[in-house]
Amino acid sequence: MAMLKTILGNLLRPPRTRDPADMPEVPPVYRGALAHDAARCTACGTCAFVCAPKAITFTQEPGVSVSWHFFIGQCSFCGLCAQNCPTRAISLQADAPGATNSAAGDGLRLESVIRLQPCTRCGAAHVPLPDATIEALWGVEEAERGYCPECRRRAASEKLRAAFVPAEEAHHDR
């Protein structure tokens, strides 16, 4: 009898019951609590676009800031926001998300404020890009760090133009 052999064998082995302390190792791909890094966020809205249960939303205070909101009660932990974030501002942590509010009242709702900065050239308020993104997209020109997208495009096209058209000729054209 297979069962009799099995159960008598169980009697000789230590129980399979696990203590909370010897939890199995969390795999690296585990999709746990959400974390958001405001310094990397460009408020592009991709996360809100791919979020099926609409747990992520954006609000803005024109000219001052853009806020990223997350409500854990709506989250389904599919991980699409982290996978699709172009600047890796969203990451899913290895620890399980809290089931209740902490004493400080945070945990269930996350909010991070992305302050708009005035453009160092024209003064228009804009979402600052993280350094890595600037490097990847625009190269490193120290003076252009604080430009708004409009000025950046302008600066880029000017550079392009300068590369094709010699400076004196350009001057003559004007």
Binding site: I7, L8, N10, L11, R13, P15, R16, T17
Partner: peptide, 9 residues
């Protein structure tokens, strides 16, 4: 029963 089933009991 628990020990036969490999549990702690």
């Amino acid at each position: 029963v628990a020990r036969l089933q490999g549990r702690q009991g």
